[in-house]
């Protein structure tokens, strides 16, 4: 705690961070140090607090959906999935099989994109510069698929309550398959660089050890819990979005240190690729969204489209003629056809 500063002349209080939002982890740690030994920490975590719950209070269910992208820019699709699943659960609706499968493909691709950013920057922090170039190179391929699918790379807003807004584009399956084929050898390449690397092992093994009990006590799940030996994955324990249909393993390790967490995440990327391959092979035909009607706070009002006074570019994108008429050949634009919502406050 900062109050106890300099009580003992060997103790030093050092301020680490806050990190800039675009670096990994927006965290300030007030460290109490004795030489290199950390005696205590006080974490300050509010730097990226944007009050999304308060925003949600002032938005309709569908309007809030894009905000979930911004909660974590490397996991926009996963966040969107969580939100859509929650709302669908409250509505007690089942969404079409095709939408579920496309959701799985995109979410697992998002997992790869996210893990790749982690791996690259992690290695960079240890002092290895090469992996970050490799990882971002492959990440780019996943982002291209997102961009082709929904027009955005990071804040994707890929899913809608009730399914998907967009049908997959021509060549989606081909590109996803090609990505998987390309990606597996790249994973081997990363592992060649790092897994048995003496410096990597030296910096990671026995660092940051969390036992399984500590993980549970501190509410830690995911790869960290699995690296501590608990074979638990929500996709297996309580499958959603059709995960029960896919064949994949839960990678685990025993030591709960940073090295084991690295291994678990690397294996997770292989499993994610497996899931993507299966999902894209068995992509069912059929509708991609189910109608759910209007939710609370929504009104059917066509104001989400640019009117005749809007700049020509917007009209072009939305397929609106110079006099406000809809053009038959209009492209994708045209507001959100799931809900027809528009900004409640104008």
């Amino acid at each position: 705690m900062p109050e106890s500063t300099f009580l003992d002349s060997t103790e030093l209080v050092l301020n680490m961070g806050p990190q800039h939002p675009s670096t990994h982890g927006v965290l300030r740690v007030i460290l109490k140090l004795d030489g290199e030994k950390v005696l205590g920490t006080d974490c300050v975590i509010g730097y990226l607090h944007r009050g999304v719950e308060k925003i949600a209070e002032n938005r309709t269910w569908a309007q809030f959906n894009p905000y979930t992208d911004r909660m974590d820019y490397v996991a926009a699709i996963s966040n969107g999935l969580g939100y859509c699943l929650a709302v669908e659960k409250l509505l007690n609706v089942e969404i079409p099989a095709r939408a579920q499968a496309v959701r799985v493909v995109l979410t697992e691709l998002n997992r790869l994109a996210s893990h790749l950013l982690w791996l690259g920057t992690h290695a960079l922090d240890i002092g290895a510069i090469t992996p970050v170039f490799y990882c971002l190179r492959e990440r780019e391929e996943a982002l291209k698929i997102f961009e082709n699918y929904c027009g955005a790379r990071l804040t994707t807003h890929a899913f809608r309550i009730g399914g998907l807004q967009y049908e997959t584009y021509d060549g989606f399956e081909r590109e996803v398959r090609a990505f998987c084929k390309m990606f597996l050898p790249k994973l081997d390449e990363y592992e060649d660089l790092l897994t048995n690397n003496r410096i990597w092992i030296g910096r990671l093994q026995n660092v940051g050890v969390l036992s399984a009990d500590e993980c549970k006590e501190y509410g830690v799940t995911g790869p960290m819990l699995r690296a501590a030996g608990v074979k638990w994955d929500l996709r297996k324990a309580q499958p959603y979005s059709g995960y029960e249909k896919y064949d994949f393993e839960i990678p685990t390790r025993q030591n709960g240190d940073t090295y084991d967490r690295y291994i678990v995440r690397m294996q997770e990327m292989r499993q994610a690729t497996r899931i993507i391959e299966q999902a894209v092979e068995s992509l069912p035909e059929g509708p991609i969204i189910r109608g759910i009607g209007l939710l609370r706070g929504e009104r059917r009002r066509p104001a989400a489209l640019p009117g005749p006074g809007a700049p020509a570019l917007f009209r072009e994108l939305a397929g609106i003629g110079p006099h406000g008429e809809r053009r038959a050949d209009s492209g994708r634009g045209g507001g959100d056809r799931n809900t027809g919502y528009c900004a409640r406050r104008g």
């Binding site: 807004q165 509708p287 759910i292 009607g293 059917r300 066509p302 006074g309 492209g331 994708r332």
Partner: peptide
């Protein structure tokens, strides 16, 4: 903007859902 019109004068759209997309809109 080619022509200036007051904001409120947006042409009302036909029923939503015929926007160029594949997803069949619930027939509302």
């Amino acid at each position: 903007a080619d022509e200036q019109k007051p904001e409120g004068s947006q042409a009302p759209l036909p029923a939503k859902g015929e926007a160029a997309g594949q997803p069949p809109k619930p027939p509302t």
